[in-house]
Structures are given as C-alpha cells and as structure tokens.
Write a protein that binds this DNA or RNA. Sequence first.
RNA 1: GCACUACUUGCCG
Length: 243
Amino acid sequence: AEEGMVSLVRAVKNGDEKRALEVFYKLEDEGRETKFYNRVLGMFGDAFSSEAAEKVYDELGRRNVRPSVQTFSIMMKYLAAEGRMDKAEEMFSLIKRTGFDPNRSAFNSLISARGKRGDIRGAERAFEELRSLKIHPNNVTFNLLLSALRDAGQIRKMKRYFTLMRRFGLEPDVITFSIVIDALGKKGHVRAAESALQDMKSRDIQPNIVTYNTLLKVYAANDLPDRVEETRTAMEQAGVRPN
RNA sequence: GCACUACUUGCCG
C-alpha cells in the first residue's frame, strides 16, 4: 500500500499522467476509502487537469465509494480554475443532493469559484446563504470576497466587508491587508494604500514578502521610483528577502 | 483532519 503510493507520487511528479492513472487504478483495486480518492484528486488536479481529476472522481461512483464534502470542494477548485463554472456549480449542488450539509469551507470554495469568474453577485449570494444557515464565516471567507471585489475594482464595497469582519469577531490579517493595499494601488489611491499599511503595522501585523511585493507593484504602477527604493530598503531592514 | 484566501518571477501543461 505504502509502496503503491510512492510509485503514484513518482508518476505524478514526472508528469506522466498515463502511468499515474494506471497506478491509481491498480491501487484502488485493493479497496480504498474516500480519503484516498480525495488525495489522488488533489494530486491529479494540481499536476494535470480538471479532466484528470474527473477520471478519479468518476471512479468513486463506479466503485460505490461515498464521496465526502471535501471531495466536491476539491473538484470545484480545479473546475473553476479552468473556467468550467457550470460543472463547479454542479459540484456544490451535489453536496446537498448527496445528503450533506455544505460547511464553511464548501461555501468558501463556492465564493472562490464565483469570485474567480468575476461573479460578484454570486459570491455575495453565497455569503448570504452561508449566513442564513448560521454558519460562521472566517478570515478566508472575507479575504475571498475582498479579493473578488478587488478584481472588480469595487473599493466601497470592500470597505463594507472590511468593517463587517469585526461584527463576526474577526480581525483583518496580513492577507486581508495585502488585498486592500493592492486594490487601492490599482485605483491610484497611493496614500490610502499607505495608510492601510500603517493600519496593519499599528495592529502589530508584520509585512511579509507578499506585502512588500504588493507595495513595490503599487509604487511602480504609480510611477514612484523613490518609494520603490524606500520599500527595498525597508525589506532589507526587516530581513525579508526578495523571492 | 483529505477541501477554501493575497503579490512577484520562472518552469511545465
């Protein structure tokens, strides 16, 4: 069993989809549980494609292995990444039709999928549905909404969600701030981006490599070479190395 | 716990 996984991982690493599938089919002949399929789903989705992941997914049905909520979330991720929204939405529906209750991560996956497609309305509807089910959102939930709104350039709405976090007992984190800084910079609101950075620091959240890359991007896009230099210096002083 | 979040660059598809 252990050896089989090793050769599966090796085939996936080598990018050999055909070989990986063969090993997978052989392994599942030994009788496997949901968790195994979910793992393989992730490996195939990351290394190959949503179609490859679907081949694994189809085996669950063929072998009468019951999927889990995670199974559908994993599929949604790969389908949405390739723009296959109808299929991704279908996966979310299948959670309910299979008799499961979608949990917070499942809703987060739905928000992510819709947000990626620029479907702000849909992402917000997913958030509202989550709330109506009395599921507590987490930082990921809000960061996903903010990220979608950033892509759509909807700063005002971002502010509303940013404020709303606190009402759920949540505090913005380093990811929240990098989304906010990026969004403001894209709009040319450099001073606002800088005050977001200050806000972050005042909460004792340390800028990380992504924060600095975002700042560099903001300054470069707004033709502020001096600020770029200052940021590089700040990075060095903070011991954050360019990646 | 096997699923969900930000930036840059490269590689593969």
